[in-house]
């Protein structure tokens, strides 16, 4: 009788312990990283200059630099896992990666799945790379016209629904650009910062970025959803706040040859230390 009672009590304590921690923070991912002594960060391997490969196969880029800083501040080793737009949120959900910094646009539906924390570290909008002779000026001109795009970009659907363009989505940017040169489509819909970089490279002299940038959308890094309001989420918020405050992001932007954005300059000003001169 005694043992039964003891077992029941033990079981009850067990259950109550579980239900108590479920409501509060378990900090599971954070503790796992600390125990392991290394943080696994999901980054892009196909998005220059944010995350791409150097000739010797190393992953480099602006987001990789940010991940390095996170690992340094936590005092752990950095492990990088290349992710794609189609699997990045699943990897985080499954626990395959601890943190995701992978050029992801901050969307309401994505906040349901992963733990997105602010302040957002970058922003970009949608624009079009189109041949100059077409003299496009307005998004409405795309109606019923074939437009090239990249698979997995959220604005493909927006351009299709709002302006009735017929999107032809490719797996890679090079394929989409080749299709544009082959005149399979009248334009290539993509991030404005990336298009600006292309135009600045001098290889696209007969092309222009004619539209008004639309759907300016902040980018977000993400921690596992349960950790959003716990140690990990709060820590990443702090990291981003400090990157803005001390101008790290503006410096990295310059280092990786990204067109300076008004957003980052504005954020640096916004988070400025009021005592500093």
């Amino acid at each position: 009788m005694k043992t039964v009672l003891a077992a029941t009590t033990a079981l009850m304590t067990c259950f109550s312990a579980v239900s108590a921690t479920a409501a509060e923070c378990s900090n599971e991912a954070w503790n796992r990283v600390m125990e392991r002594g290394s943080i696994i960060v999901g980054v892009k391997a196909d998005y220059k200059p944010w995350g791409y490969r150097s000739t010797d196969g190393e992953l480099v880029g602006m987001e990789i630099d940010m991940a390095k800083d996170v690992a340094d501040k936590m005092g752990v080793e950095l492990e990088l896992v290349p992710v794609q737009s189609s699997n990045r949120m699943q990897f985080l959900e499954q626990g395959k990666i601890d943190l995701m910094i992978a050029t992801m646009s901050d969307r309401a539906d994505r906040r349901e799945i992963v733990g997105i924390v602010g302040p957002n570290y970058y922003t970009s909008g949608t624009n079009l790379l189109a041949p100059k002779p077409l003299k496009l000026t307005d998004w409405e001109q795309l109606r019923d016209k074939p437009v090239c795009g990249k698979q997995g970009a959220f604005y493909n659907q927006i351009v299709e629904e709002r302006y009735g363009a017929k999107i032809i989505a490719f797996a890679g940017n090079a394929e989409a650009k080749q299709a544009l040169r082959d005149k399979k489509c009248i334009g290539f819909v993509y991030d404005d910062s990336s298009i600006m970089a292309d135009l600045a490279s001098g290889d696209w002299d007969e092309f222009e970025m004619p539209m008004k940038t639309e759907d300016d959308n902040p980018w977000a890094l993400a921690v596992p959803k349960d950790e959003r309001n716990c140690v990990f989420g709060r820590f990443m918020s702090g990291m981003q706040y400090n990157w803005h405050k001390d101008g790290t992001l503006v410096e990295l932007e310059k280092k990786w040859g990204i067109q300076p954005t008004a957003y980052l300059a504005g954020q640096q000003d916004r988070f400025k230390d009021w005592l500093s001169k």
């Binding site: 791409y52 490969r53 290349p82 890679g172 090079a174 650009k177 292309d198």
Partner: peptide, 10 residues
């Protein structure tokens, strides 16, 4: 990825 790293030149 290599093509991407080389600026996606078609």
């Amino acid at each position: 990825q290599a093509i991407e790293a080389e600026n996606n030149r078609p």
